[in-house]
């Protein structure tokens, strides 16, 4: 048991667990963001709850940050180890004959998602932490009303940011198209339900990023 994380299968398992957590988080993030399309009040209330409820702030948020960092660091560590397992490359390699582009390029899609995440943190997370824990304003109010919806709208005014977010979510979709099914395979789940699960995975991998793109475009054009 002690050496499980030092083994190839143990690392796969840990990667899969962090992936499951992140996929559930993305779904929850989307569920709240889509509220902004239908009702600014409901979006404000949900955002204020998530931004101030102690269990979310002091339990789930640190776990999330750890999960994100772990997933990226372990991903890069595995990539380096895997590259070291083949010192001499093939003069001709026909990877497309036996595997998908997404499966062969997880490090690249993941790398672009990391760049996107850094920008996303600078855009939303760091100002939020600053307001709440540096300035000390936990009210969530600005000029007598909740600030969350207006902040969201303002962020999506510049077209360059909207374009950047769209590209980021396209890479997320590419990553999930392989990652969803791969995570289940890594924890040993390959059985009669696998085909249905892979179908659901495709819906998730395309549907959720497409939904995020829709939200960004909606606020850009409707504002």
């Amino acid at each position: 048991m002690s050496g499980i994380l030092n083994s190839s299968i143990g690392r796969k398992f840990a990667m899969a667990l962090s992936a499951f957590f992140l996929m559930i988080f993305i779904l929850q993030h989307f569920a709240i963001n889509i509220l902004s399309v239908f009702s600014s009040e409901t979006f404000n209330e949900a955002s204020h709850f998530m931004g101030t409820f102690w269990a979310v702030q002091f339990i789930l948020q640190p776990v999330l940050i750890f999960g994100v960092i772990f997933h990226f660091v372990m991903g890069f560590v595995l990539e380096i180890r895997n590259n070291n397992a083949r010192k001499v490359s093939y003069a001709k390699n026909n990877g497309r004959a036996n595997s998908s582009w997404m499966s062969r390029n997880m490090i690249w899609s993941g790398g672009f998602i990391l760049v996107f995440l850094i920008i996303h943190f600078i855009d939303f997370w760091i100002p939020e932490i600053n307001t709440k824990y540096i300035v000390g304003d936990m009210s969530g109010m600005h000029n007598g009303e909740y600030r969350y919806f207006h902040e969201l709208q303002e962020k999506f005014i510049p077209i360059w940011r909207v374009a950047l977010y769209c590209v980021g979510f396209i890479f997320l979709a590419l990553h999930l198209l392989h990652g969803f099914g791969s995570a289940f395979q890594s924890v040993g789940a390959n059985n009669k339900y696998t085909r249905a699960l892979q179908g659901f995975g495709k819906v998730y991998a395309i549907g959720i990023p497409a939904g995020f793109i829709f939200i960004a475009l909606y606020h850009h054009f409707v504002h």
Partner: peptide, 14 residues
């Protein structure tokens, strides 16, 4: 010194 499986499925095909 073998690498880590990333479930590309290339092995199964080949």
């Amino acid at each position: 010194g073998f690498g880590n499986c990333t479930n590309t499925g290339a092995c199964e095909v080949e």
